[in-house]
């Protein structure tokens, strides 16, 4: 397994579990154990996550990535010792200098972001795959504004009950099984399950265009179950 296998969700889970610091070790850049150079992906994930941490009021220094070869036992020991001391100095999670977030608030914020992980992976796809040449580029890859915008303008998908013809296309294709559907029943997106991948938006037949993209606004409430049955005019006649 490669350091590129370390998922954003893992990092969030560790902090959500109350870990005070997290270090990811990977092969030296350009000395990939595989041929995929996954350590660059681990690096961009960490850079993104550090910005997210700042966004929710955590000290980004709590997350670090270090590149070393499996032969550098000494360096590993050194780095671990150093990082351990740094984390001790930072104090407990959320209570460090400039942090001051309530444990529960932190947990719920982290939970919220964890839910958005699939979405973040999709919209930041290109940047997450970039191969940064020098450390000066690291901090610039993701900006504060960008992250603020990422969370303030989260996209949601909504099926317009007026337009939905209950054709089942979107439901069949939804990778998260987030669409509540049945024949002749207007489809509804379960926003709790939805991962915002946009598959439904893309596959909804153009003649219906029932799925809409909503950005930065609340999603209208789903129509009540009893009103979901479609009365087909054509058939009535």
């Amino acid at each position: 397994m490669c350091s590129g296998r370390v998922d954003l969700e893992f990092v969030l889970r560790a902090f959500s579990n109350g870990m005070d610091g997290l270090l990811i070790g990977g092969c030296r850049l350009n000395e990939c154990n595989y041929i995929t150079h996954g350590n660059y992906h681990a690096l961009t994930m960490v850079l993104l996550c550090r910005k997210i941490m700042e966004h929710i009021g955590l000290n980004p220094e709590r997350l670090r990535i270090e590149f070393m070869s499996s032969a550098e036992g000494n360096r590993f020991a050194e780095v671990m010792g150093e990082f351990g001391n740094e984390v001790k100095e930072l104090g407990p999670l959320g209570k460090g200098k400039g942090e001051g977030i309530d444990q529960n608030e932190l947990k719920s914020k982290l939970a919220e972001i964890t839910k958005l992980v699939p979405y973040i992976k999709l919209v930041k796809n290109e940047k997450l795959a970039s191969r940064l040449k020098n450390p000066e580029e690291y901090d610039k890859l993701f900006t504060k504004d960008e992250i603020d915008k990422l969370f303030s303008e989260v996209i949601s998908y909504y099926i317009d009950p007026e337009k939905c013809q209950a054709c089942m296309t979107c439901a069949k294709r939804c990778p998260a099984e987030a669409i509540i559907s049945a024949k002749n029943q207007i489809h509804v997106i379960d926003q709790e399950k939805c991962i915002k991948c946009g598959t439904c938006f893309e596959v909804c037949p153009p003649k219906f265009r029932a799925v809409t993209k909503i950005s930065g606004e609340p999603v209208p409430p789903p129509i009540p179950e009893e009103k979901r049955t479609i009365v087909r005019k054509g058939k009535e006649k």
């Binding site: 296998r5 870990m19 699939p118 991948c197």
Partner: peptide, 30 residues
């Protein structure tokens, strides 16, 4: 290497022996 696993937005692809469930269980146990 499992890079695809962490890139996949929907969790459709999984690296056997290093699955999300296995690794998250480890993180929780920590």
């Amino acid at each position: 290497d499992g890079l695809c696993n962490s890139k996949c937005p929907t969790g459709a692809i999984r690296l056997k022996h290093f699955t999300d469930e296995e690794l998250l269980a480890q993180i929780d146990a920590a």
